[in-house]
Structure formats: structure tokens, C-alpha cells
């Protein structure tokens, strides 16, 4: 199966808002969000979000988060578009599990090193050499990536499968056509009490949680990615899980674009009345599940059909203003 033969089209929308605490203290939003293609519609499609650590020692974590999402989205998109055969699932799955986390971490370290070379940390005199910044043997003073520490969550939807990658806290939810909400990845017990696995940790690729879901008869109607500031804003877990089914209902009733228009208000309300942390929510929506309510919906799609039309105009395309 090649890209042109894909039977599903996807659209991404998303928003990141500065947390109430950061607004009061004058701190920047340390979350980031990015997707590819930039149009936010198509297949394959990649969405990435990141959460920079907020503690004082992570003084550049907002930059680390931005670099993380840009690298993850582009790297995974390049990986997917370079595949000649989407049906070779075992080969792709192996590459996703074994190669992608390492490649992502290495690319992030290189980007951090490059940024640091151009923008030295105050008091840091020594030169920066790419490649050894988070060696396990490096002391904290030698590990310059610490200042950029961030989590990363990335999800990619391709014609025959969905990829889930997560390093650190935050949530991925999937919602099926019957509005059943579930988590595609197992819980990481280390993510507790404001502590998280991180891109700046030694051998960070070992800490990734990776999921690979072939698309057969069942596929998610929605996939939601959220930084931890969002689930922490709800009184209990059920209140957060309800977000998934509520958004699917809203998309079916009023369309993707209407939901997109409301995201900033919803997330701002959540941080103000909830955790106070930065809040980021990215949503990948199966246009088939949107029920014809998206202006961007590719027409003529059936479960066994082929796409036969592109979005009507570039002005309809979602997302560019959120990045």
C-alpha cells in the first residue's frame, strides 16, 4: 500500500496555553506542539507535544520542548514518507521500536548542542561538542542538555498503522467510534510526584514507551495527546477521560473547526481552575469519524474507498496559527 492508496484521512488540531502559574510569575509557556504536514491534514500525519521541565535548573526547557516537537514531527514524517511498502508491518514496527527513539534523542541532543553553541549558558565557558552531552558518565555540570530538559509525546497515523511514542509524563488517549476511551500505552510508574523521564536523562531512548497498532477493522476515531497540566486539572481520572468522548461528540455535532476554535478557551479555563500548569492538547481526528462536519473533510471516503478530493482551499487548513 502506498500513500495514494490510503483509505483513511486524518486531520490534526491543537493548542497550547501558558499556565496560570506561569502567567502570574512571568514565566514562558514551557510546552510546545508541532505537526507534519504543516497543513494538518493527510496521511501519514505526525503530531508531537512536549513539556519542558519547570524547575530552575531547566532554564531553557521551553526551547528544549520546541526543539523536541519540531525534531520528532519531522523525523517521524520523513521516516514514514520514505517507506516504500506500508504493508511491511514487521519491518516498520521493528524500526519504530529500535531505531526511532535513538534517532529522536540523538537529533534532539544535536539540536540542543547547536543552540548552546550559538547561545552559551551564563557562566559556561567550555565548548560544546555534540554527541557526549548526556553520556551516562557525564556529571551534571558536563551535561548541558539538562537546561533544555523536556518530555516528548508523538503519534503518527499512516495508512496501515498508528505509532505511539512517549518519553515522560502526559497522556495519550484513543477514542473509538463507540466513544470508548482507552490508553494505548502502559502506565510508567516512575512518572509520579512531579518527576518524569526526560530527553536530558542518560540514555533517554531506553525510557521510551512505544506502541505500534496495525489498522485493521478497528482504528481510533480520535487520538488525544495532552501534557500533564491538562489531566492534572481534573478532580479525578474519570473527568479527564471524559474529555475524549466529549470531544468526539462535539466534533460529530459541530465539526472539527468549531472544536478548534474553542480549544484555547477550554484549555485556559482548565489551567485557571485546575493545575495552573501549562496545558497543551493535540487531537488527531479520523475524518471518516468526523461525520461530515469538518470543512476540511476529504469527500468521498468510505471504509473501503479511496480519497478522491483534497481540501477545498488552503484557508480551511487547520493548525498553522497554533504552532
Amino acid at each position: 500500500m502506498n500513500i495514494e492508496e490510503s483509505t483513511l484521512q486524518w486531520q490534526v488540531i491543537g493548542q497550547s496555553v501558558r499556565g496560570a502559574v506561569h502567567q502570574r510569575t512571568g514565566m514562558p509557556n514551557q510546552d510546545a506542539i508541532c505537526w507534519r504536514p504543516e497543513s494538518g491534514i493527510g496521511s501519514p500525519l505526525v503530531l508531537a507535544i512536549a513539556d519542558g521541565h519547570g524547575s530552575p535548573r531547566y532554564s531553557r526547557s521551553h526551547i528544549g520542548a520546541r526543539l523536541a516537537v519540531e525534531i520528532a514531527a519531522q523525523l517521524i514524517h520523513n521516516f514514514l514518507t520514505s517507506q516504500s511498502d506500508y504493508n511491511n508491518l514487521s519491518l516498520i514496527k521493528r524500526a519504530v521500536e529500535e531505531w526511532l527513539p535513538r534517532a529522536l534523542v540523538h537529533s534532539w541532543i544535536e539540536a540542543v548542542s547547536e543552540h548552546l553553541t550559538k547561545n552559551a549558558l551564563p557562566g559556561v565557558e567550555r565548548s560544546v561538542r555534540a554527541g557526549n552531552r548526556n553520556d551516562e558518565s557525564a556529571s551534571e555540570s558536563e551535561n548541558f542538555t539538562i537546561a533544555y530538559g523536556a518530555t516528548i509525546i508523538a503519534v503518527a497515523v499512516a495508512p496501515a498503522f498508528v505509532i505511539y511514542l512517549q518519553l515522560g509524563d502526559g497522556e495519550i488517549l484513543t477514542v473509538d467510534d463507540r466513544s470508548q476511551v482507552s490508553r494505548p500505552l502502559a502506565k510508567d510508574e516512575r512518572l509520579f510526584a512531579n518527576e518524569t523521564t526526560s530527553l536530558c536523562a542518560p540514555e533517554a531512548w531506553r525510557d521510551f514507551r512505544v506502541g505500534f497498532q496495525p489498522i485493521t477493522n478497528e482504528r481510533p476515531a480520535l487520538i488525544l495527546l495532552a501534557t500533564d497540566g491538562y489531566p492534572n486539572s481534573f478532580r479525578d481520572e474519570s473527568g479527564f477521560l471524559k474529555v475524549g468522548s466529549d470531544i468526539l461528540t462535539a466534533i460529530r455535532a459541530e465539526g472539527v473547526d468549531k472544536v478548534k476554535d474553542n480549544l484555547e478557551t477550554w484549555l485556559t479555563d482548565s489551567t485557571n481552575a485546575g493545575s495552573g500548569d501549562d496545558v497543551t492538547l493535540g487531537i488527531i481526528c479520523s475524518l471518516e469519524s468526523a461525520g461530515g462536519k469538518s470543512k476540511n473533510r476529504t469527500t468521498g471516503i468510505t471504509r473501503s474507498g479511496r480519497k478522491n478530493a483534497e481540501p477545498s482551499s488552503s484557508s480551511d487548513l487547520a493548525g498553522a496559527d497554533s504552532q
Binding site: 486539572s233 481534573f234 478532580r235 473527568g239 470531544i247 477550554w266 482548565s270 485546575g274
Partner: peptide, 13 residues
């Protein structure tokens, strides 16, 4: 559309 998705919001204890 004004209905915020999800359950009750709460600050962290």
C-alpha cells in the same frame, strides 16, 4: 459551542 469537555476541574491538593 460553550460546553467545556471533561469532568469537574480542581486545583491540586
Amino acid at each position: 459551542m460553550s460546553m467545556r469537555p471533561g469532568g469537574e476541574l480542581a486545583t491540586r491538593p
